[in-house]
Nucleic acid binder design. Structure first.
Length: 281
DNA sequence: GCCCTTTCCTGGAAGC
DNA sequence: TGCTTCCAGGAAAGGG
């Protein structure tokens, strides 16, 4: 499940593999519905001959700037993966798009569940501007975060998963951050005080940086789990404190981790460290 | 505008 | 063992 640390790992891998400066000789689209815009034929026609001038991440989007002025947005959603293949290598299972590069490699997109989308846009700003602030951006202060929470009646966890509020968090890092901050996921956002907001932002940054340094989280094996461009598993799964650790002791107090549903999403908490309402007992 | 529910999709786990 | 059922997840659409 690629979230901010996993997408950033993919972007860094692609940059290290020399994607910037590569000219796309042609695009091959095997599964039309993976191309969100424009029509797959037009997509292939527009991208052919373009040079990839820069790659970056915004939220969970991979953002590729092209010499034509267009922007290619790739969202991996649940099971999307990018990898390099040798020229003309047959399609593997669940491979949907291929960019044939001028140095001979093919950048292939594989996505078992086909939730991911590619968008080729002349102006990506309307999509990217819908996203909330980057949690690791130094300009995003605790005061700004507190202000975002103060006017929301929603529960804090679904709010953290809302990309319009804050960009890049998914189920894993939201659970980890709430545990780290000692906050119950069902707390109404507006019930958090300034100090809670400050602590939560600090925890969000801590778990994201830990995920980044571990090159992402890979919870299982097989086609539905995260692998970087180099086909490498992440190492952060061994550092998770609550996510998918139901019944195992809380690293802080030893209480068994509980699993509950919050806004339809499986959620992992320590029932002792994360109380629904603040009490001092 | 905000919030909640539903939908998309398929491998793999769980249940019988 | 083999079959069926259900769950996992991010984001967008639709409804209140």
């Amino acid at each position: 499940m690629p979230e901010l640390p996993e997408v950033e790992t993919v972007v860094r891998d692609l940059r290290a593999a020399g994607i910037e400066g590569q000219r796309v000789l042609r695009a091959r689209v095997r599964t039309a519905d993976v191309i969100g815009a424009p029509h797959p034929r037009r997509f292939a026609a527009c991208i052919a001959g373009c040079t990839i001038t820069a790659i970056r991440r915004r939220g969970k989007y991979i953002v590729l700037a092209l010499s034509s002025g267009d922007t290619l947005l790739v969202h991996l959603r649940m099971t999307g993966r990018l990898r390099f293949r040798s020229p003309g290598e047959p399609w593997a299972a669940h491979e949907h798009v291929s960019l044939v590069l001028h140095d001979g490699r093919e950048l292939r997109y594989q996505d078992t569940r086909r939730f991911g989308r590619w968008h080729l846009l002349d102006d990506a700003a309307p999509v990217l501007e819908r996203l909330g602030p980057e949690p690791l951006d130094a300009h995003f202060t605790a005061a700004r975060f507190g202000a975002l929470l103060a006017c929301r009646t929603r529960q804090i966890k679904p709010l953290l998963l809302d990309q319009r509020v804050i960009a890049g968090l998914g189920n894993i890092y939201a659970d980890e951050a709430l545990w780290d901050a000692g906050l119950h996921p069902e707390r109404p956002a507006a019930s958090l005080g300034a100090r809670d907001a400050q602590r939560l932002l600090r925890s969000i940054r801590k778990v994201l940086r830990r995920g980044l340094s571990g090159l992402g989280t890979t919870l299982g094996r097989g086609q539905t789990h995260f692998y970087s461009v180099a086909g490498r598993r992440g190492r952060n799964q061994g550092r998770l404190r609550v996510f998918r650790r139901t019944g195992r002791p809380c690293p802080r107090c030893g209480t068994p981790i509980a699993r509950l549903k919050v806004a339809q999403r499986s959620t992992h908490i320590c029932p002792r460290c994360q109380r629904p309402v603040q009490d001092r007992h």
